[in-house]
Amino acid sequence: MTDEDSLNTGVSALDQGYQSCHVCMSIAPIAHNHCELCGSVLHARIPNSLQKTWAWLITSILLLIPANTLPIMQTYVLGSGSGDTIFSGVITLWQHGSYPIAVIIFVASILVPVTKIVILITLCLSIQFSHASSTTEKTTLYRLTELIGRWSMIDIFVVIILAALIQFGGLMNIYPGFAAITFALMVITTMLAAISFDPKLLWDLNQIAVPEVKEAVE
C-alpha cells in the first residue's frame, strides 16, 4: 500500500497510487471506490473514456448531416411556406447586408461544431496512436472545445424565439424545422463527447515518453 509520507509532488498522482475526487478535489488511494467527503464514485481516469468519446462523436457526426441539409426554420407568408437550412439562412442574411449576424450564425452553427469535432477526433487519435508531443497545446485545444461548444446553441434559440414571436394568423408564421431538433441533439452529443474525454490521458502519454522524469524523483 502507498503511504502518504512518501508522496512526491510534481509527479503523476496515479503513478503513486493516488486519485482525486472529480467533484470535491479530495485525494484518496486508488483502492477507494467512494469519496469520503462527498460520496462520489472515484476513478483515477474516466472509465472507457476513449470508447465513450468516440461513440458520442460518431453520433454527433451522424446528427450533423440532417442538421445541415434539412430546414432549420419554416417561414409561411400568406399560406405559402419556404424552408431555410442553416447555410441558406447564412447566405440570405449576407445578401441582405446583415454581415455581423451572418458571421455570428456561421461561426456558431457551422465553424464551432465542426472545429470541436475535428479537435476531439485529433485528441482521441493522438492517444490511440500514443503520439506524445505538444501535450500543452493539446490541453489548450481541449479547453477550447469545452469553452466554445455551448455557443453553438445560439441559432436554436433564435429559431425558438422567432417561432414563438412570429405567429400572425395567416399573414406570417414561423415554425422550427426538423433540423432544429437534430442540431440541438448534435450540440448536446458533442458536449457529452467533451465531458467523456479525459485530458489526463494526454499527460499519461507524456510520462511514458519521458521516463527519466519519473526515475529522477523515485
Binding site: E4, L7, N8, T9, G10, V11, S12, A13, L14, Q16, Y18, Q19, S20, H22, M25, S26, I27, A28, C35, E36, L37, A44, T139, Y142, P199, K200, L202, W203, D204
Partner: peptide, 18 residues
C-alpha cells in the same frame, strides 16, 4: 484518511501540495 495536504490537478494528474 482523506488528506488535505495534497491536491491533484484534474486535467494533468500532477500531485501538488495543497
Amino acid at each position: 484518511m482523506a488528506s488535505t495536504e495534497y491536491i491533484i490537478c484534474h486535467e494533468c494528474d500532477l500531485l501538488l501540495a495543497a
